[in-house]
Nucleic acid binder design. Structure first.
Lengths: 341, 341
DNA sequence: GATCTCCGTGGTACCGATAACACCACAGCG
DNA sequence: CGCTGTGGTGTTATCGGTACCACGGAGATC
């Protein structure tokens, strides 16, 4: 009933069980070299005192904190949410805990949290970086010898394991589909080129147009932030183009959502007036209402696989060349593209 | 370019700047009692060496780790996802970091992660507990003097700050709405009674029926897990009841999703054959397709407010009586209930 | 002029564990 | 019988900081 029980330490356990702290340490670390009888006495003392070894202290002396950081631009984006779940799961099974950081796509915030994670002495970092400009922070990690993996996005001139989706090929596929449906004026809503996925998807878009002999109209490529608000503004802008595009490729699901709202706000309809395709499914929405034609990425796998790669690095399979894993995306035709499916 | 730069410590900084470690400590903690000139020298050395103080060491001596744990049953449930985002935000602004744990609604896992969090010496825990049977773990926290707050769910006989929704009143409201639409046979899909929200919502359901003079038919209350799969099975069972219910109240959005799929699987329609209402919105789904009639809870606020309460406790505004905060829910009528809106 | 006070700084112990080494007892071996 | 090996245990130093106390000197107070 004491309000703040003074922490019971390894020494207390040692005293009660009549051995040295070192022996207690051996017991809690499951080392062999302990007489069964001694082990029993120590375990009894541990139970009696309710002793829980401090990871802090262990971390200090052993340089193993048992924590890794997971840094994402927006937890509430369903794509990243699933990454979080996958990463947490793999980390836990491996005896690691996750420190979660949401950068809100803010480069400054990202710099700060990375600094914080260095201070926390996390053993590694899995990060979906804000953009190529994350390069500086990541370099800093390298200097500190903190292993890290990149999720979903590469960063130019940064050497690390990375788990990617098929951005270019996927985008090409989506746009080819629109072209096959007869569209010629196809817009794209995309974020700034210093995000690798944006860059790659844009490239896929351009390739598809080129292969079809459609001239690129820069008026039809608009930049936005990667959220419904950005999608809304982006679509508003596209709708002003002359002549209006008949189809639009949104860089991801949240952008698509905003884009649809903008279409509605003009009194128009998807797909009748504007066909729409995008990356990333919204699982719970699609179950209820299978509407968006999308490239579905295996989001959770980005998290599980990325974390596995990270753990390997941490375990010191160290200086191998860095790996690039590309996860296949699945093309799912639904109604938003206007196909008769 | 050294692969693992030997950690630079406070002593290195001290040596380079020609002062004692203690003085360096004062500088990094922004204590007043340092001559400006000295401070500058130390800061120069810090910059030159790229020194980042170890939170581990600080935690060990100062008993402040700067971390709090956030424990939820399922990160990918949009309700909890938003809680996570809210908590992370408030924690970060207060200089704390979040260790995220997903218990998958597994009591044993919950026990383990709580034990882990004690070992990590987190300064506090915000937890959406699995059920009343979480009581034992929580008691253990209390014994260790680790402050904690409960999110979304109370636990009987556990004393702590808690942030709740209007489960009973909200449920009553939803069911009254169904009754007002003329329904008399109203089913409910709910999880086990040892989860406080389930208990409360069930109570609200029963009250609404009673006030309307409708006899409770226990055949119409089915238990399930809180996910689409459970909702699917639950609805399947309800559809077998004789006579079939004409309306169903699902305990939350994920259950509702599964329930709808079960209705479709029978070749029936929502709301024509079965009207449906539930708790918790799915933001991204509702924007695209406003279908579910729900009680919308301010999910993110559960996280922000809960974390604020926790931080207050940590700061030692300690022995005040524990607080119960009830967050209002908003009733949103859409199509799934069959109202002409 | 003596005492008090506060400033700026250093010395030492300690937070709670582990690594590295030392030590003792006893077994096996030539 | 002396030597090596190894099982079981303790000692000491250390991980990287901070709390606490001490100390010299400048200015204030009486």
């Amino acid at each position: 009933m004491s309000p703040r029980p003074p922490n019971v330490t390894i020494k207390d356990v040692a005293r009660v069980s009549g051995v040295s702290p070192m022996t207690v340490s051996r017991v809690i670390n499951h080392e062999r070299r302990v007489r069964p009888e001694t082990r029993r006495r120590v375990e009894a003392a541990i139970a009696e005192l309710g002793y829980v070894p401090s990871r802090l202290a262990r971390g200090l002396s052993g340089h193993k904190t048992g924590t890794i950081a997971l840094i994402v631009p927006d937890v509430a984006n369903p794509f990243f949410t699933l990454i979080v779940r996958g990463a947490e799961d793999v980390a836990r099974r491996a005896g690691y805990r996750i420190i979660l950081c949401d950068t809100r796509s803010d480069l400054t915030l990202e710099r700060d949290v990375i600094e914080e994670m260095i201070a926390h002495r996390v053993e590694g970092i899995a990060i979906a970086p804000v953009s190529d400009r994350s390069r500086l922070h990541l370099r800093r990690l390298a200097r500190f010898g903190v292993p890290f993996v990149l999720l979903d996005r590469t960063v130019s001139d940064v050497d690390a394991d990375v788990v990617l989706g098929e951005s270019a090929a996927g985008a090409k596929r989506l746009v080819e589909h629109l072209i096959a449906l007869g569209h010629r004026r196809i817009g794209m809503i995309v974020e700034s080129d210093d995000v690798s996925t944006a860059r790659d998807r844009r490239r896929g878009y351009e390739q598809a147009l080129e292969h079809a002999g459609i001239a690129l109209d820069t008026e039809l490529v608009v930049l936005s932030t990667v959220d419904p608000r950005g999608g809304f503004a982006g679509m508003q802008q596209l709708l002003k183009a002359q002549p209006r595009p008949t189809a639009v490729f949104a860089v991801n699901n949240l952008v698509a959502l905003g884009a649809i709202e903008a279409v509605w706000a003009e009194g128009l309809e998807v797909p009748d007036d504007i066909a729409l395709v995008c990356f990333d499914d919204i699982e719970y929405a699609s179950r209820l209402y299978p509407f968006l034609t999308v490239m579905v990425q295996p989001a959770e796998t980005f998290g599980t696989l990325g974390t596995q790669l990270l753990l390997e690095r941490i375990r010191g399979d160290g200086h191998r060349r860095s790996r690039v894993v590309v996860l296949p995306a699945e093309f799912v035709v639904r109604r938003s593209c206007g196909a008769r499916a």
